[in-house]
Design a protein around this nucleic acid. Sequence first.
DNA 1: TAGGTTCCCTAACGAACGTTAGGTAGGAGT
DNA 2: ACTCCTACCTAACGTTCGTTAGGGAACCTA
Lengths: 200, 200
Amino acid sequence: MAMHAQMPSRRREIEDAASVLFRDRGYAATSIRDIARELDIRGASLYAHVASKEDVLWAIVDRTASRFERAADDAIADRSRAPDPIGRMTALVRGHVRVITEDVGAASVFISEWRSLGEMRRAAVLVRRDAYETQLRDVIADGVASGDFTMTDAAMTASYLLTALNGIATWYRPDGRLGADRIADHYVDLSLRTLTEDHR
Amino acid sequence: MAMHAQMPSRRREIEDAASVLFRDRGYAATSIRDIARELDIRGASLYAHVASKEDVLWAIVDRTASRFERAADDAIADRSRAPDPIGRMTALVRGHVRVITEDVGAASVFISEWRSLGEMRRAAVLVRRDAYETQLRDVIADGVASGDFTMTDAAMTASYLLTALNGIATWYRPDGRLGADRIADHYVDLSLRTLTEDHR
DNA sequence: TAGGTTCCCTAACGAACGTTAGGTAGGAGT
DNA sequence: ACTCCTACCTAACGTTCGTTAGGGAACCTA
């Protein structure tokens, strides 16, 4: 009576292979037979494990969205650890970078291939992305109120920051010259610079 | 004896319609017949004007790459107007924003659909993108040398900046609440913040 | 009036797509 | 020994894809 702990491993292998292909060629340019070839089986055999091609994309996007949400909640909710805006922003950026570097393939798919989902799922993802961006915007607003940050347009700044952070997914590779920690440190620094004024 | 000034207008209409579709659905998910429908003709009729579907993508990407290169050269080469790193960076950012806002469709395609090009053309684009990023990195290095900027990793900072700037293409609409000039002003400010230190 | 050019048409091609149907081999549980 | 389940197979379906062939109408040039 084990309580269905992890996903049936084969299913996960399919999603991982699909993540890499979707990131490298895009969802539409990747065929079911391409994914199957990566696992040394035939295209039709995949349908023993997944209901449809979009189903695979959805699993990747949904799981990654949840990871981003979880990371943001951990960073913001725990105010005993990070009571001030600077601390919360630091935790937010660090969490965002971690989610990306822990699974670049899935993160890339979440960031840029969610548009290929069907209408309802795409709309649902959009809502969740907006909620995430709102959390970021709220921390920025808190920082402006407390005097820690200076800002003329919080919405634009939030999307500037978020886009810059997501950019990591386009170039990060686990075996690259820069470790995940180094990158997180640097992006925390760059983000806080963006939120404070100095030049002139 | 007019000196072949502008492109045969019909060809350009095709590219403009394709830009919008490629941006909204991606290159692979857009069919020749989709593009034709936008112009109220049949798919096969497009081949009177273009050699292939990839040909259309290439025309958009190549033209937009040239516009970015031209803008960067104007910003950097003219040192009488912008002798110091801050001035050159300002001109660089302003030019980048202008290229995007003048044609968001084409810019979006250049930024994210160039991967769909064939091997040789994709490699050529990569070289040009690297050259562009190098120009940005050089201005950053100049600023560090002159003491205008403070920086620990110029390469990472350059890609942080470039990604943030490119993000404009994902949300900017000509009829939106923010005009191109307002956006340029704001992004110049954010970019200079990113390059200078203040917090802690 | 004749010829050429531009722009679009219908029809069709072979290939690739996502997906379904039906079957087989092997291991686990009884 | 029997059944069930998992994991894969081959074969085929209807559709859509990029692209080619060949033709017709409208207009310009001479």
